[in-house]
Design a protein around this nucleic acid. Sequence first.
DNA 1: TGCCCGATGTTGACCGCATGAACATTCCAG
DNA 2: CTGGAATGTTCATGCGGTCAACATCGGGCA
Lengths: 215, 215
Amino acid sequence: MAAISGGNTYHHGDLRNALICAAVALATEGGPERVVLREAARRVGVSPTAAYRHFDGRGELLRTVRTHARRELADSMERAAAREPGADDPALAAERRVAALCRGYVGFAVEQPGLYRAAFCVPRPGATDEPAPERPQTEPEIRAFTLLREALETLARSGAARPGTRPATGAAAWSAVHGLSLLLVDGPLRRLPVQRRNAVVETTLAMVVSGARAL
Amino acid sequence: MAAISGGNTYHHGDLRNALICAAVALATEGGPERVVLREAARRVGVSPTAAYRHFDGRGELLRTVRTHARRELADSMERAAAREPGADDPALAAERRVAALCRGYVGFAVEQPGLYRAAFCVPRPGATDEPAPERPQTEPEIRAFTLLREALETLARSGAARPGTRPATGAAAWSAVHGLSLLLVDGPLRRLPVQRRNAVVETTLAMVVSGARAL
DNA sequence: TGCCCGATGTTGACCGCATGAACATTCCAG
DNA sequence: CTGGAATGTTCATGCGGTCAACATCGGGCA
């Protein structure tokens, strides 16, 4: 990175990326609120205002980190699903995939609480950042959710394809894993001993799967 | 300042409460991050540092707001449950109660997003507040959760009292409503049209209830 | 080739916020 | 009545976000 030896260039050459890396590191350490423009600049060895040449301000930096975090989350889910052994019965396979994706989701949250929180932070116009976008702007789609939804659809089609599979099933499942993650990471279920935590995770997974079948 | 008419007391007389009210109002307007010590003091018409005579700092003020918000949340759930008509079949009644409590939960979140978020905020030692308590200190118990858990236990006992009712069922259900609430209030499901929102809520409720029966 | 402009950094300044220290004003118990 | 405790106030420090003005660098155009 940034030529430690020699070329002490006035122009950094890759400041934007360097700042993003620093910001991601900060988020990893302490979540979105730890993503501080000045600190990121400090770590990169640049003056605070230099960041404004590459970002609108803290808000945009944070949103960039969020994008990164969401990608990592989805990757974690896919890895978990890939590790899962297949099954002859397509229904069983689908069920396993759903469960694996969910475990990957919660696993990421538990192992990377800071990044996980950053993945779902909302830059609020309240403070000094975010002038509140006038265009409602379509959400860029969250891969984690897409993965989950698709797996649930497969599950629905494969096995007990009850005719009226509710379209909102994906959101319901997402709610469960998301809520679980937050309670474990941030909320009242943090400091739960590992064993008990796993019990809660498995129970929730069971609820999701049974719910997906029943709906 | 204070008391424009007459009793211009140097001593406010009830500053603590006044500050709490102001802080709650702030949280109602813009969530926990909007709870700013200085602003609360300003609204009460007192100097910023006066607050320190009644609170350790912003952290404690926020925690006080949180307590208040949690109480409101639980009240909302109980009101919703109270509105629910009874049923002869105890199993059905139990099921209805669970659903009603959940609706009250999500309803509160949607109607009072700021307060709801404040109810689950975590004062982080990162910034300037919270010196990180050396004693892990037992969480003061969250009534919303207790209500839900008890209703689920009743449900389990009443009807299909499957022998192995998992103890974590309460946490699983809580995860679902909590996650749903956050996605709706704060997350990617905010700006969902009301109709679709209700669909998601009902689907999630169905998942919770069916899950409770199945576990 | 050499100069000028645009991109990229830097300084300095302003404002809001959380806090702590020292000082002022009340109130009440002795 | 009076002095200390309780409760407010003022002043000052440090951090973070952001803006405006100024400095550098690098590359394309005359």
